[in-house]
Amino acid sequence: MGLLAGRTALVTGGSRGLGRAICVALAREGAAVAFNYSKDEEAAAETLRGIEACGVRGWSFKVSVLDRVGMQALVKQVEKDAGKIDILVNNAGIGQVVPLALMEEEDWDRVMDTNVKGAFIATKAVLRGMVREKRGRILNIGSLAGVKMMQAPVHYSAAKAALKGFTEALAKEIGRYGITVNCLAPGVLDEGVSGNLPAARRDEYLRHCALGRLGTCEEVADFAAMLVSDRNSFMNGATVVLDGGV
């Protein structure tokens, strides 16, 4: 029996990259998995197939994480079908390699909205059920760029640092309801948001990484599955760095 047998999870931004890997990892551990995505229907279908291949139920919703009403409807639908949502992984996020000098206000807003406001909207939507159940696991996908000084876009680093604060304040506020909130901060991975990094920056990372390689989405996803399982019951408000040793 998997670590998450009988649980239901919602992963935001689950159609591609790390989001997809997390969906499949959770499914492999026995959780029924719902995810949302905003654009790529073909990729979403592939994720859904990956979930269902694990023998669990999957749901796929084409809803932006910034669509409050849509996210609430998504949550209601999953709760209606599965009874409850036990796990939320706030994964949806975007990056953009641009120096501050060239960064437009719209760039800033887009990155901050998707990475931070999206987590707020998804969390508020699932929180009602978790408080009712007096149980829940919320995992925010942060970034090493939000924890350490790195050569990374300012708005992206700021957004990921905001998620760390979001994690800590929320963990304090809702711990009394048996809900844990943690943040997983990966280093540079070989696909997903990191895939857009210029080669020079990837090389710089490799120079500083003790393991001398980039991480994989599967490595992060497997660890995420453990973090939201009952095996990880006392961690709360923590930001865990997974970076190969930088």
């Binding site: 929180l127 009602r128 408080v131 506020e173 009394r176 309801y177």
Partner: peptide
């Protein structure tokens, strides 16, 4: 009051 608010929020 915060507990109460969460109670109402979760069962609205």
């Amino acid at each position: 009051l915060q507990d109460l608010m969460y109670d109402v929020f979760s069962q609205q």
